[in-house]
Design a protein around this nucleic acid. Sequence first.
RNA 1: GCGCCCUUAGCUCAGUAGGAUAGAGCAACUGCCUUCUAAGCAGUCGGUCGGAGGUUCGAAUCCUCCAGGGCGUACCA
Length: 577
Amino acid sequence: MWSLISFCRNGASSTVSNGCGLMRKWNWSPMNFKNPEEFILSTLADFLNQKNLNDIQPVLQKPKEEQFGDFSTSLALQLAKPLRSKPAEIAAEIKNFFPVQNEYLSKIEIAGPGFLNFFAAVNNVYDQFRQILNSAGRFGLTDLNSGKTALIEYVSANPTGPLTIGHGRQAVLGDTLTRLLEATGYKVQREYYFNNAGRQMRILGESVRLRYLQLLGVNTEFPEDYYQGEYIRDIARQILAEFGAALKDDTENTIFKDRAEQAIFTDIKNTVSRLGFAFDTFFNEKSLYDDKKIDAVVADLRSRGLVEDRDGATWFLTTKIGFEQDRVIIKSSGEPTYRLPDIAYHVDKVKRNYDLIVDIFGADHIATYPDVLAGLQALGLPTAQIKVLIHQFVTLTEGGKVVKMSTRKANFVTLDELMDEVGVDVTRYFFLMRHMNAHLNFDLGLAKTQSDENPVFYIQYAHARICSIKTLAAERGVTYQPNLHIELLQSGEELNLIKHLIQFPELVRSAAENFEPHRLVNYLFDLANLFHKFYTLCRVISDDAALTLARLSLIDATRLVIANGLRLLGISAPEKM
RNA sequence: GCGCCCUUAGCUCAGUAGGAUAGAGCAACUGCCUUCUAAGCAGUCGGUCGGAGGUUCGAAUCCUCCAGGGCGUACCA
């Protein structure tokens, strides 16, 4: 696939034409650039500068075809119109603009209608490769956003029942995005927003109370819209064990609700912990009422003429700020709708001054966030730092058939049950492997397969294979030293692997910047593929001592990148399989 | 009706700012284990990128319209 390398010149400027007619090759000084990309982009920018075309941004791509070099640009094609010249002629001019001798490129070719194809100097590739083992566990991390803070809110399910598979996708996405943001330097706080006050929680408490009465032999009806799950009975049983029949006539029921909330939150935290992370803060909606932040938002909006009392309810006049209809924020019953606390919560978040605020919602919440952002803007607060991510739903399939996610126990409705069935690594991998905009088809049959059909193991297997080779090398008394003799790595399989490895930091950066963890999954899959190909064709431990050492460095670097990548995904990197 | 997302191989999906011959996994078929893990590798088969226009030297990608699917469009969260 073609790939965009970089849009900026990273400040590593080369010499600029000085207007005295000197060709830049005379005053070009070496050692200014980290890699060929920077060198090419800088030189292209200088070319454009000389032509007074500074508004054009040169773009580099990575051709998928080896014959088209390591980097390619269609700049000459773009310039054909402004320069009123033929692309091929412009390409030739650009090619001549590059210094003949430089340490970054081995050659430049003009191909097709006017593409410029750049071939990286192999020594430069080796230099970049050495960074992998030199950086070790830190390879792939950048300090791009160091010093910045981020808040990421996700899951945020009210404590009315165990986490479902839908929550699972969000939990894994959120955790992995956190890890990716941290890899670019952010200090990230994971927050879980919940409400233990509203109607749902009242029904929860009542559900437990009714089950408790049933356990006591009271013949009572259990309404259909109450919580049907077996976990309600479990909680009722615990209360029965502790209090006996003492609560039989207690209709106040706060004990039922409180015990239910407590038990369910414990359960949720355990599930999250199994997935491999923990939330830093749990933000209770109730605190917004206690701290009068709800009232403050209404008062503030009212003072701006954006609130009106009508039909016994309080309305947010969103039509005044460009929406099609006004929204009720306080019902005639006196209870706020979800919009009001949502706005107040976001006001609180914004005032906590994070450089980045990420909200992850399921597709069913698509309608809520425009109102929230509009509310913030109406209150004069900034929203540019807020990134709202919407993910599509999960469909469970098995044997090509959709598994209905009903409340019936027999189906895998909870995240815990899914992890019991397929394990944490598979769970995380399947939730991460698709773009979050796409509906996720979770193939239970495939996930359960502990064999070659399961893509998770393909990556892990590469890691385990490498560990096995390293063990064998040690057993045979090979003294391994990192980065020795790597110039001996010259075959196509070896160079393909090396070139893929050195892209890792850029890949991590772009996955984080675009909030797209699935890119890392695809990258690691491709990496494993390149390794397996190398493994098949190149023997690591051989009679050639120098080549053995070189290849040990290559597989060790591969192992490191796989391990670092899997760590970002929260997936284990087993040494044996 | 309106809003957001989706439509790419038989199935599940990639395709990262518009680039060169559209990729992978699964499924089907064929080879490769006396050599560091065959949970692997190599190969065959498979596509009017939902449809129609448009912009461009160049479109799966951008714009418009249409069709199909999902989710919303509450004084539910």
